[in-house]
Amino acid sequence: MSSALLPPVRTLPPPGTHQRIGLFGGSFNPAHSGHLHVAETALKRLELDWIYWLPARGNPLKQAPAKFYDRVHQVRELIGHHPKMFVSDFEHWAGLRYTVDVLSHFTRHCPHARFVWLMGADSLQNFDDWKNWHQVAETLPICVVSRPNAGPRALRSTFAHRYATTRLRERDAARLPDMPAPSWVYLKAPFDWTSSTQLRSGAQKR
């Protein structure tokens, strides 16, 4: 797809917004249909106004990803002209590396927005390895979407145990953007079995 036909990169939401906005961070190395499945599930079930995809500059817990703007371009191709999704180059633009710092900037820039952090269940398994993970959990509500082979371990994770009393029932998911952190919900959804690891492995074998 020609880059001229792709949706524009939007770095930050409007500062005065009061909308319900999902922030979906990750390496997206590469972006694939499983990521889109997580985003679309959260968009619908949480009744969000927008989702901002936030490709990471780097991930200290994973191998070095592809070049930043190559991954931005992949996300743009994946979401196409979805009317409620944007890709943000904020981490690169601001020179940041850690989620806790990214969230601090977003919440200061948009103090009235109702942000939710989005992640697949596979990311929740090692969430406690993230820098200042408890601060992330206590900055924004978190929506976790089921992923293949990840659910049981995710729900036994350090995060899940520590914040067990703040978990919303799945049927109350639409309330999450209005809840104070720490609060979270686990959404079950039909699986998309695509994974970045498999895609990278397949590319290396060709």
Rank of each mutant, 00 (worst) to 15 (best):
G80N: 05
H105D: 02
P148F: 09
Q74I: 08
L54S: 03
A66E: 09
F159Y: 15
N126K: 09
Q125L: 11
L36Y: 01
P7R: 09
H73C: 08
A203E: 13
R20F: 10
A164H: 11
G120S: 08
K188A: 15
K131R: 15
S104Y: 03
H32A: 08
M179Q: 11
M1P: 11
A56Y: 07
S157R: 14
S123T: 06
V75F: 01
I79A: 01
N132F: 08
R76G: 05
K205Y: 11
I142V: 14
T139S: 07
S2Q: 15
T158S: 12
Q63E: 15
E91P: 03
H18S: 14
N29Y: 13
T107P: 00
C143T: 03
L5P: 02
R114L: 07
R175V: 05
L48K: 03
Q19S: 15
T17P: 13
D122A: 09
P141L: 04
P180L: 09
W133S: 05
N126M: 09
I79V: 08
L6T: 09
T17K: 12
R206F: 03
T194C: 08
L12E: 05
R175T: 06
S183P: 02
E77Y: 01
L43F: 08
N132T: 05
N132G: 04
R76F: 06
K188E: 15
D128H: 12
L78V: 05
V87N: 01
M85N: 04
L43T: 04
Q19E: 15
T165R: 15
V136W: 02
W117T: 02
W130G: 07
D128V: 00
A94W: 04
L103I: 03
T166V: 09
V102S: 12
H35N: 07
R108P: 00
W193D: 05
R97A: 08
A203S: 12
R156D: 15
W50A: 05
G120T: 02
G25V: 07
L199Q: 10
I142S: 11
V38N: 09
V102C: 03
A137V: 06
R153E: 09
R167M: 15
L124K: 14
P180K: 04
A121H: 12
P60R: 04
A173P: 03
C110F: 01
S157H: 15
R156C: 13
P8L: 10
F106G: 00
K205P: 05
T99Q: 00
L46K: 01
Q198K: 15
L6F: 11
D49P: 12
A42E: 10
R76E: 06
P148S: 06
M179D: 02
A203F: 10
N132C: 13
H35L: 07
I79M: 01
H37W: 05
K131P: 00
R114N: 00
